[in-house]
Amino acid sequence: MDEKRMMLRHFLAALAYRTQKALRDAPEGFGDFKAGLKVRTPHELVRHMDSVLGYARTYLIGGSYRPRVHAEFAEAIADFHGVLEDLARHLEAGTEFQGITPEVMLQGPFSDAMTHAGQLAMLRRLAGCPVAPENFIFAEISAENLGMDQPLPVSPDKEWPEKL
């Protein structure tokens, strides 16, 4: 596997980590939290992240992608992680890019999904249950772990303004 593919796989692992950090220990009903008019709920955001990455995968395998609609937030989260894992498998296997470069994959759909992980964290704050900041340089992120079971922060901030 070349260095660009390794970097993309690691980026997907960072996305899995940051998404789960934003969702871990969220209060019941967080998936349906409405921050305001025309603002996606966390459930809608995760489905959109699934869609963005499923779309990215079409640049490796062709076809089209439509994420499933789930009544349960947990099922949408599981689908999102499934798409992450499948994308990473194709990167590792050397599946050829079709009509896109690794750089454009990173600047487009991968970065879009990471932006939404940040929005999930912001929604946690707006919902009154902020996520503790951490020094991500020390986070235990592994390209081998793209699932929901992500490690706890190694270096969380001890003091932070929003701490309840």
Score class of each variant (00 low, 15 high):
residue 2 D to P: 14
residue 2 D to R: 09
residue 4 K to S: 10
residue 6 M to C: 03
residue 9 R to L: 08
residue 11 F to W: 10
residue 17 Y to G: 01
residue 17 Y to C: 05
residue 18 R to Q: 13
residue 21 K to T: 07
residue 21 K to G: 07
residue 22 A to F: 00
residue 25 D to A: 14
residue 26 A to F: 02
residue 27 P to T: 10
residue 28 E to A: 12
residue 30 F to Q: 03
residue 33 F to I: 06
residue 34 K to N: 11
residue 35 A to D: 07
residue 36 G to P: 05
residue 36 G to Y: 07
residue 37 L to H: 13
residue 38 K to D: 11
residue 41 T to L: 03
residue 43 H to V: 05
residue 46 V to Q: 00
residue 49 M to D: 01
residue 50 D to G: 08
residue 51 S to E: 13
residue 51 S to V: 05
residue 60 L to T: 05
residue 68 R to E: 11
residue 69 V to A: 15
residue 70 H to Y: 13
residue 70 H to M: 11
residue 71 A to S: 11
residue 72 E to H: 09
residue 73 F to C: 07
residue 76 A to N: 00
residue 77 I to R: 14
residue 78 A to N: 07
residue 79 D to W: 04
residue 80 F to A: 02
residue 80 F to T: 03
residue 81 H to K: 11
residue 81 H to E: 06
residue 81 H to I: 03
residue 83 V to I: 15
residue 87 L to A: 04
residue 88 A to Y: 02
residue 90 H to D: 12
residue 92 E to G: 10
residue 92 E to T: 12
residue 93 A to N: 14
residue 94 G to E: 13
residue 96 E to C: 03
residue 98 Q to S: 12
residue 99 G to T: 03
residue 100 I to F: 06
residue 100 I to T: 06
residue 102 P to E: 01
residue 104 V to K: 05
residue 105 M to D: 01
residue 106 L to A: 12
residue 108 G to A: 11
residue 108 G to Q: 07
residue 109 P to Q: 11
residue 110 F to A: 09
residue 113 A to T: 12
residue 113 A to E: 02
residue 114 M to E: 09
residue 117 A to Q: 02
residue 118 G to P: 02
residue 121 A to K: 13
residue 122 M to C: 15
residue 124 R to H: 06
residue 126 L to P: 05
residue 126 L to N: 13
residue 127 A to D: 06
residue 127 A to L: 03
residue 128 G to P: 03
residue 128 G to A: 13
residue 128 G to D: 09
residue 130 P to L: 09
residue 131 V to S: 12
residue 134 E to K: 01
residue 134 E to F: 04
residue 134 E to Y: 00
residue 135 N to H: 10
residue 137 I to Y: 15
residue 137 I to M: 08
residue 138 F to T: 12
residue 140 E to D: 15
residue 141 I to W: 01
residue 143 A to M: 13
residue 144 E to D: 15
residue 145 N to S: 07
residue 146 L to V: 05
residue 146 L to A: 04
residue 147 G to N: 10
residue 150 Q to F: 08
residue 155 S to C: 08
residue 156 P to M: 08
residue 156 P to W: 02
residue 158 K to W: 08
residue 158 K to F: 14
residue 158 K to R: 14
residue 159 E to W: 09
residue 160 W to I: 07
residue 160 W to N: 04
residue 161 P to K: 14
residue 162 E to K: 13
residue 163 K to V: 08
residue 164 L to F: 11
